[in-house]
Design a protein around this nucleic acid. Sequence first.
DNA 1: GTAATTCCGACTGTTTTACTCGGATTTCTC
DNA 2: GAGAAATCCGAGTAAAACAGTCGGAATTAC
Lengths: 152, 152
Amino acid sequence: MKLSTKGRYGLRALIDLALYSEEEAVSIQSISNRQNISVSYLEQLVAKLRKAGLVQSVRGANGGYRLAKPSDEISVGDILRALEGNLDAVTCSGNQEHSTCEGADLCVTRFVWQRINESITQAVDTMMLSQLVEESRELRDKGQICNQKCEN
Amino acid sequence: MKLSTKGRYGLRALIDLALYSEEEAVSIQSISNRQNISVSYLEQLVAKLRKAGLVQSVRGANGGYRLAKPSDEISVGDILRALEGNLDAVTCSGNQEHSTCEGADLCVTRFVWQRINESITQAVDTMMLSQLVEESRELRDKGQICNQKCEN
DNA sequence: GTAATTCCGACTGTTTTACTCGGATTTCTC
DNA sequence: GAGAAATCCGAGTAAAACAGTCGGAATTAC
């Protein structure tokens, strides 16, 4: 029931990327320096974000990444799902037609998993990257940007 | 970000227990028969529920378990936390005083984890075992009790 | 005394996590 | 064209978590 480092680091990385990619593409190396995450691990994370269509890459020297669409069109849910896969706490196979869970709609616990899943979905899909970026910018301007010891 | 079988099986087991323990204590063997979960694994799960004060044991022959308190005083959150531990998707150490996350309240992502955690907490703590038992009873009386193929 | 039961800790195979590493490819700059 | 700075990609690996099983001790009804 825990979010892995993929989701935690990946969200930090993408906020960083959004924050610094206005003028030029942001390299993985520079994210690594600021966020204290290894270059090789970041490569993996950013690859997932790219495959999900959240960032675009610019290859070659002076290359890097930038957002593939405006930050107010990217939800935290989009980001976490790209990194972690399905966020459902329990993936009840009952949504498909002929699933293994034949009495799906009769399953009492199913009601429970659905409510949990819905509440998570609702939470992550209503938070937008733009909000986080804005908040980050405010803190940065006040000189209060989160230091490196924070690992979440 | 998934609930393990501990939480999934354990909730099913406790609903079953609540449903059948009105007259006499329910043995692990009988839960196993109805719910199709191995006796040895159930022992582990029920031990957790007992240590959390949700069920009481009756030792010896004809022994078994019953609820330690009324089913409307036991929330799904109580049950899942007993089985899975803390349900927070990210356990930000920042709640303690001198945590390793010094800039805790400045951490932008922290805001995200908090919202996710709160939404999960809200969902699980407002669902009561009594509701689930009632719903189960209705289905059972209609002869529609979930068959064994449902594994959630 | 015996059978039914809870209680308990140790053990084990499998899967997932959290990474690292080596090298191929692309592109800018000189 | 050479070299450096990047992305891109797949494979590998140690450690942890998961999903159980197993053997046996303790308790109690009959």
